[in-house]
Amino acid sequence: MRKSLTLHLGLIALLFALQFIAPAYHHGNLARIMVMASFAMGYNIMFGYTGLLSLGHAMFFAVGMYGMGLSATQLGLSIGPAFGVGILSALICSLIVGLLALRTIGVAFMIVTLMFSQTIFLTILYFGGITRGDEGFVIKQSTRQIFGLDLSDATTRYFAALLLFSLVLLGILWLVKSPTGRVLIAIRENEERAKMLGYDVWRHKLAAVVMSGTVSGAAGAAYGVLFGYVGASFSQVPYSIFPLLWVLLGGAGTVIGPFVGTLFMFYLIDLSSTVTDAYMLVVGVILVLLTMFARNGLMGIVRERWAKWLP
Protein backbone atom coordinates (compact mmCIF):
# COMPACT_ATOMS: atom_id res chain seq x y z
CA MET A 1 0.00 0.00 0.00
CA ARG A 2 2.77 2.43 0.90
CA LYS A 3 4.61 1.75 -2.35
CA SER A 4 1.56 2.36 -4.48
CA LEU A 5 0.59 5.51 -2.60
CA THR A 6 4.14 6.84 -3.07
CA LEU A 7 3.99 6.09 -6.78
CA HIS A 8 0.67 7.82 -7.39
CA LEU A 9 1.37 10.82 -5.17
CA GLY A 10 4.78 10.99 -6.84
CA LEU A 11 3.15 11.20 -10.26
CA ILE A 12 0.92 14.04 -9.08
CA ALA A 13 3.94 15.86 -7.60
CA LEU A 14 5.85 15.39 -10.86
CA LEU A 15 3.00 16.83 -12.89
CA PHE A 16 2.77 19.71 -10.42
CA ALA A 17 6.48 20.43 -10.87
CA LEU A 18 6.25 20.19 -14.68
CA GLN A 19 3.93 23.18 -14.61
CA PHE A 20 6.97 25.31 -13.76
CA ILE A 21 9.49 23.56 -16.01
CA ALA A 22 7.69 22.41 -19.15
CA PRO A 23 7.89 24.61 -22.27
CA ALA A 24 4.64 26.30 -23.27
CA TYR A 25 3.84 23.82 -26.04
CA HIS A 26 4.13 20.74 -23.83
CA HIS A 27 2.49 22.61 -21.00
CA GLY A 28 -0.67 22.98 -23.07
CA ASN A 29 -0.47 19.38 -24.22
CA LEU A 30 -0.14 18.09 -20.67
CA ALA A 31 -3.29 19.91 -19.56
CA ARG A 32 -5.16 18.24 -22.41
CA ILE A 33 -3.57 14.86 -21.64
CA MET A 34 -4.57 15.06 -17.97
CA VAL A 35 -8.23 15.68 -18.89
CA MET A 36 -8.21 12.90 -21.49
CA ALA A 37 -6.45 10.57 -19.05
CA SER A 38 -9.31 11.22 -16.60
CA PHE A 39 -11.68 10.15 -19.38
CA ALA A 40 -9.60 6.99 -19.87
CA MET A 41 -9.50 6.30 -16.12
CA GLY A 42 -13.27 6.46 -16.07
CA TYR A 43 -13.35 4.01 -18.96
CA ASN A 44 -10.93 1.75 -17.08
CA ILE A 45 -13.39 1.28 -14.18
CA MET A 46 -15.68 -0.61 -16.52
CA PHE A 47 -13.27 -2.20 -18.94
CA GLY A 48 -10.15 -2.75 -16.85
CA TYR A 49 -11.63 -3.57 -13.47
CA THR A 50 -15.10 -4.99 -14.17
CA GLY A 51 -14.46 -6.58 -17.56
CA LEU A 52 -17.23 -4.70 -19.40
CA LEU A 53 -16.10 -3.59 -22.85
CA SER A 54 -18.02 -0.50 -23.94
CA LEU A 55 -17.77 0.82 -27.48
CA GLY A 56 -19.82 3.90 -26.66
CA HIS A 57 -18.02 5.94 -24.04
CA ALA A 58 -18.03 8.98 -26.30
CA MET A 59 -21.65 9.43 -25.26
CA PHE A 60 -20.74 9.96 -21.59
CA PHE A 61 -17.94 12.36 -22.49
CA ALA A 62 -20.29 14.25 -24.82
CA VAL A 63 -23.24 14.27 -22.44
CA GLY A 64 -21.03 15.72 -19.71
CA MET A 65 -19.65 18.27 -22.16
CA TYR A 66 -23.02 19.31 -23.60
CA GLY A 67 -24.71 19.26 -20.18
CA MET A 68 -22.12 21.77 -19.06
CA GLY A 69 -21.99 23.77 -22.31
CA LEU A 70 -25.73 24.07 -22.92
CA SER A 71 -26.54 24.99 -19.33
CA ALA A 72 -23.85 27.68 -19.48
CA THR A 73 -24.85 29.15 -22.85
CA GLN A 74 -28.60 28.45 -23.00
CA LEU A 75 -29.54 28.71 -19.32
CA GLY A 76 -26.88 31.24 -18.46
CA LEU A 77 -25.53 29.29 -15.49
CA SER A 78 -22.12 30.30 -14.22
CA ILE A 79 -19.35 27.82 -14.87
CA GLY A 80 -19.35 26.05 -11.48
CA PRO A 81 -23.02 25.05 -11.48
CA ALA A 82 -22.82 24.33 -15.23
CA PHE A 83 -19.99 21.90 -14.54
CA GLY A 84 -22.23 20.27 -11.92
CA VAL A 85 -25.06 19.96 -14.44
CA GLY A 86 -22.61 18.29 -16.83
CA ILE A 87 -21.62 15.68 -14.26
CA LEU A 88 -25.22 15.11 -13.25
CA SER A 89 -26.25 14.63 -16.90
CA ALA A 90 -23.55 12.01 -17.35
CA LEU A 91 -24.65 10.28 -14.17
CA ILE A 92 -28.26 10.06 -15.30
CA CYS A 93 -27.22 8.98 -18.80
CA SER A 94 -24.96 6.23 -17.49
CA LEU A 95 -27.67 5.01 -15.12
CA ILE A 96 -30.17 4.66 -17.97
CA VAL A 97 -27.62 3.09 -20.31
CA GLY A 98 -26.53 0.71 -17.56
CA LEU A 99 -30.07 -0.39 -16.75
CA LEU A 100 -30.70 -1.20 -20.41
CA ALA A 101 -27.34 -2.38 -21.72
CA LEU A 102 -26.58 -4.66 -18.77
CA ARG A 103 -29.44 -6.88 -19.88
CA THR A 104 -27.02 -8.01 -22.59
CA ILE A 105 -23.58 -9.54 -22.35
CA GLY A 106 -20.48 -9.93 -24.49
CA VAL A 107 -20.66 -8.85 -28.11
CA ALA A 108 -24.26 -7.65 -27.77
CA PHE A 109 -23.21 -5.36 -24.91
CA MET A 110 -20.51 -3.79 -27.08
CA ILE A 111 -22.89 -3.20 -29.98
CA VAL A 112 -25.65 -1.83 -27.73
CA THR A 113 -23.29 0.71 -26.19
CA LEU A 114 -22.09 1.65 -29.69
CA MET A 115 -25.69 2.14 -30.83
CA PHE A 116 -26.65 4.23 -27.81
CA SER A 117 -23.63 6.42 -28.40
CA GLN A 118 -24.54 6.82 -32.05
CA THR A 119 -28.05 7.80 -30.99
CA ILE A 120 -26.61 10.56 -28.79
CA PHE A 121 -24.50 11.80 -31.70
CA LEU A 122 -27.50 11.88 -34.02
CA THR A 123 -29.58 13.60 -31.33
CA ILE A 124 -26.97 16.34 -31.11
CA LEU A 125 -27.13 16.77 -34.89
CA TYR A 126 -30.93 16.70 -34.94
CA PHE A 127 -31.23 19.49 -32.39
CA GLY A 128 -28.77 21.57 -34.40
CA GLY A 129 -30.75 24.71 -33.58
CA ILE A 130 -29.52 24.55 -30.02
CA THR A 131 -26.34 22.51 -30.34
CA ARG A 132 -25.09 24.07 -33.60
CA GLY A 133 -24.69 20.51 -34.94
CA ASP A 134 -21.34 19.56 -36.44
CA GLU A 135 -19.91 23.02 -35.97
CA GLY A 136 -20.36 23.05 -32.21
CA PHE A 137 -20.09 26.19 -30.16
CA VAL A 138 -17.54 28.17 -28.23
CA ILE A 139 -17.78 28.93 -24.52
CA LYS A 140 -16.79 32.54 -24.17
CA GLN A 141 -13.81 33.47 -22.11
CA SER A 142 -15.97 35.78 -20.01
CA THR A 143 -18.03 32.75 -18.94
CA ARG A 144 -15.04 30.62 -18.01
CA GLN A 145 -14.38 32.32 -14.68
CA ILE A 146 -14.59 30.76 -11.25
CA PHE A 147 -13.72 32.28 -7.85
CA GLY A 148 -12.12 35.16 -9.74
CA LEU A 149 -9.83 32.79 -11.64
CA ASP A 150 -9.69 32.81 -15.43
CA LEU A 151 -9.87 29.19 -16.57
CA SER A 152 -8.70 30.09 -20.06
CA ASP A 153 -5.39 31.24 -18.64
CA ALA A 154 -2.73 28.58 -19.31
CA THR A 155 -1.49 28.27 -15.75
CA THR A 156 -4.93 28.18 -14.15
CA ARG A 157 -6.05 25.70 -16.75
CA TYR A 158 -3.09 23.46 -16.03
CA PHE A 159 -3.84 23.44 -12.30
CA ALA A 160 -7.54 22.84 -12.87
CA ALA A 161 -6.72 19.88 -15.11
CA LEU A 162 -4.25 18.61 -12.51
CA LEU A 163 -6.90 18.93 -9.81
CA LEU A 164 -9.38 16.86 -11.80
CA PHE A 165 -6.71 14.33 -12.69
CA SER A 166 -5.55 13.98 -9.08
CA LEU A 167 -9.05 13.55 -7.71
CA VAL A 168 -9.88 10.87 -10.26
CA LEU A 169 -6.52 9.10 -9.84
CA LEU A 170 -6.69 8.95 -6.06
CA GLY A 171 -10.41 8.18 -6.12
CA ILE A 172 -9.84 5.16 -8.34
CA LEU A 173 -6.85 4.05 -6.28
CA TRP A 174 -9.11 4.12 -3.23
CA LEU A 175 -11.91 2.31 -5.09
CA VAL A 176 -9.62 -0.45 -6.27
CA LYS A 177 -8.32 -1.05 -2.76
CA SER A 178 -11.81 -0.99 -1.27
CA PRO A 179 -14.03 -4.05 -0.78
CA THR A 180 -16.20 -2.88 -3.69
CA GLY A 181 -13.16 -2.73 -5.96
CA ARG A 182 -12.24 -6.26 -4.95
CA VAL A 183 -15.73 -7.46 -5.95
CA LEU A 184 -15.50 -5.68 -9.33
CA ILE A 185 -12.24 -7.48 -10.03
CA ALA A 186 -13.85 -10.75 -8.92
CA ILE A 187 -16.65 -10.18 -11.44
CA ARG A 188 -14.09 -9.55 -14.17
CA GLU A 189 -12.20 -12.72 -13.28
CA ASN A 190 -15.09 -15.14 -12.72
CA GLU A 191 -18.60 -13.79 -12.65
CA GLU A 192 -20.28 -17.07 -11.70
CA ARG A 193 -17.99 -17.54 -8.72
CA ALA A 194 -18.56 -13.98 -7.53
CA LYS A 195 -22.29 -14.60 -7.61
CA MET A 196 -21.88 -17.85 -5.67
CA LEU A 197 -19.96 -16.01 -2.98
CA GLY A 198 -23.12 -14.00 -2.34
CA TYR A 199 -22.40 -10.85 -4.34
CA ASP A 200 -25.13 -9.11 -6.30
CA VAL A 201 -23.26 -9.09 -9.60
CA TRP A 202 -25.83 -7.04 -11.45
CA ARG A 203 -25.81 -4.20 -8.91
CA HIS A 204 -22.04 -4.10 -8.85
CA LYS A 205 -21.93 -3.94 -12.63
CA LEU A 206 -24.48 -1.14 -12.63
CA ALA A 207 -22.42 0.73 -10.06
CA ALA A 208 -19.35 0.28 -12.27
CA VAL A 209 -21.18 1.66 -15.32
CA VAL A 210 -22.44 4.66 -13.37
CA MET A 211 -19.05 5.44 -11.82
CA SER A 212 -17.35 4.96 -15.18
CA GLY A 213 -19.85 7.08 -17.09
CA THR A 214 -19.86 9.83 -14.48
CA VAL A 215 -16.07 10.14 -14.37
CA SER A 216 -15.94 10.18 -18.17
CA GLY A 217 -18.67 12.81 -18.21
CA ALA A 218 -16.76 14.93 -15.70
CA ALA A 219 -13.77 14.77 -18.04
CA GLY A 220 -15.98 15.87 -20.94
CA ALA A 221 -17.40 18.77 -18.95
CA ALA A 222 -13.90 19.77 -17.86
CA TYR A 223 -12.68 19.65 -21.45
CA GLY A 224 -15.42 22.05 -22.48
CA VAL A 225 -14.67 24.39 -19.58
CA LEU A 226 -10.90 24.39 -19.98
CA PHE A 227 -10.63 24.52 -23.76
CA GLY A 228 -13.79 26.52 -24.39
CA TYR A 229 -15.24 24.38 -27.16
CA VAL A 230 -18.20 21.99 -27.31
CA GLY A 231 -18.61 19.94 -30.51
CA ALA A 232 -20.44 16.94 -31.93
CA SER A 233 -17.18 15.29 -32.99
CA PHE A 234 -16.58 14.36 -29.35
CA SER A 235 -19.66 12.13 -29.48
CA GLN A 236 -18.51 10.23 -32.57
CA VAL A 237 -17.07 6.75 -32.81
CA PRO A 238 -13.37 7.73 -32.62
CA TYR A 239 -13.95 9.19 -29.15
CA SER A 240 -15.32 5.82 -28.06
CA ILE A 241 -12.28 4.07 -29.50
CA PHE A 242 -9.68 6.43 -28.01
CA PRO A 243 -10.27 5.56 -24.32
CA LEU A 244 -10.23 1.87 -25.22
CA LEU A 245 -6.95 2.39 -27.03
CA TRP A 246 -5.37 4.47 -24.24
CA VAL A 247 -6.38 1.95 -21.60
CA LEU A 248 -5.23 -1.04 -23.64
CA LEU A 249 -1.91 0.61 -24.41
CA GLY A 250 -1.22 1.81 -20.88
CA GLY A 251 -2.53 -1.33 -19.23
CA ALA A 252 -6.14 -2.23 -18.48
CA GLY A 253 -6.82 -2.76 -14.81
CA THR A 254 -3.96 -0.60 -13.60
CA VAL A 255 -4.58 2.78 -11.96
CA ILE A 256 -1.72 4.53 -13.69
CA GLY A 257 -2.06 2.78 -17.05
CA PRO A 258 -4.67 5.09 -18.63
CA PHE A 259 -2.40 8.09 -18.05
CA VAL A 260 0.62 6.32 -19.52
CA GLY A 261 -1.42 5.21 -22.54
CA THR A 262 -2.88 8.67 -23.14
CA LEU A 263 0.53 10.32 -22.85
CA PHE A 264 2.15 7.86 -25.25
CA MET A 265 -0.62 7.98 -27.81
CA PHE A 266 -0.90 11.76 -27.70
CA TYR A 267 2.73 12.31 -28.56
CA LEU A 268 2.77 9.49 -31.08
CA ILE A 269 -0.13 11.05 -32.98
CA ASP A 270 1.38 14.48 -32.50
CA LEU A 271 4.64 13.33 -34.09
CA SER A 272 3.02 11.41 -36.93
CA SER A 273 0.61 14.21 -37.84
CA THR A 274 3.61 16.34 -38.76
CA VAL A 275 4.46 13.67 -41.36
CA THR A 276 1.05 12.71 -42.73
CA ASP A 277 -2.64 13.59 -42.62
CA ALA A 278 -3.38 9.92 -42.16
CA TYR A 279 -2.25 9.93 -38.53
CA MET A 280 -5.11 7.65 -37.52
CA LEU A 281 -3.05 4.94 -39.19
CA VAL A 282 -0.91 4.92 -36.06
CA VAL A 283 -4.02 4.24 -33.99
CA GLY A 284 -4.90 1.26 -36.17
CA VAL A 285 -1.45 -0.27 -36.19
CA ILE A 286 -1.06 0.06 -32.43
CA LEU A 287 -4.48 -1.46 -31.76
CA VAL A 288 -3.62 -4.48 -33.86
CA LEU A 289 -0.16 -4.90 -32.35
CA LEU A 290 -1.54 -4.58 -28.82
CA THR A 291 -4.16 -7.28 -29.26
CA MET A 292 -1.60 -9.57 -30.82
CA PHE A 293 1.46 -9.07 -28.67
CA ALA A 294 0.74 -7.10 -25.51
CA ARG A 295 -2.69 -7.77 -24.13
CA ASN A 296 -1.83 -6.31 -20.76
CA GLY A 297 -0.37 -3.06 -22.04
CA LEU A 298 2.71 -1.22 -20.82
CA MET A 299 1.87 -1.12 -17.12
CA GLY A 300 0.58 -4.68 -17.29
CA ILE A 301 4.05 -5.73 -18.43
CA VAL A 302 5.63 -3.72 -15.64
CA ARG A 303 3.34 -5.45 -13.16
CA GLU A 304 4.14 -8.91 -14.49
CA ARG A 305 7.89 -8.44 -14.58
CA TRP A 306 8.84 -6.05 -11.84
CA ALA A 307 6.07 -4.77 -9.61
CA LYS A 308 3.44 -7.31 -8.61
CA TRP A 309 2.06 -4.81 -6.11
CA LEU A 310 1.00 -2.33 -8.81
CA PRO A 311 -2.72 -1.67 -8.30
Binding site: R182, V183, I185, A186, E189, N190, E192, R193, A194, K195, M196, L197, G198, Y199, D200, V201
Partner: peptide
Protein backbone atom coordinates in the same frame (compact mmCIF):
# COMPACT_ATOMS: atom_id res chain seq x y z
CA UNK B 1 -26.63 -14.29 -4.23
CA UNK B 2 -29.40 -13.70 -1.70
CA UNK B 3 -29.54 -17.35 -0.71
CA UNK B 4 -25.78 -17.31 -0.27
CA UNK B 5 -26.12 -14.20 1.86
CA UNK B 6 -28.65 -16.06 4.03
CA UNK B 7 -26.02 -18.64 4.85
CA UNK B 8 -25.51 -21.13 2.05
CA UNK B 9 -22.16 -21.86 0.49
CA UNK B 10 -21.50 -23.88 -2.64
CA UNK B 11 -18.19 -25.27 -3.77
CA UNK B 12 -17.96 -26.13 -7.43
CA UNK B 13 -17.47 -29.59 -8.87
CA UNK B 14 -15.24 -28.19 -11.58
CA UNK B 15 -12.79 -26.04 -9.67
CA UNK B 16 -13.95 -22.44 -9.94
CA UNK B 17 -11.50 -20.07 -8.33
CA UNK B 18 -10.15 -16.67 -9.35
CA UNK B 19 -7.13 -17.93 -11.29
CA UNK B 20 -5.33 -14.64 -11.65
CA UNK B 21 -5.78 -13.48 -8.05
CA UNK B 22 -3.70 -14.59 -5.10
CA UNK B 23 -4.82 -17.29 -2.70
CA UNK B 24 -5.33 -14.58 -0.09
CA UNK B 25 -7.59 -12.51 -2.37
CA UNK B 26 -9.65 -15.58 -3.23
CA UNK B 27 -10.46 -16.29 0.38
CA UNK B 28 -10.75 -12.58 1.20
CA UNK B 29 -13.62 -12.38 -1.28
Amino acid sequence: HKRISMGMAYTFQITSIFDDLTVFENVAL
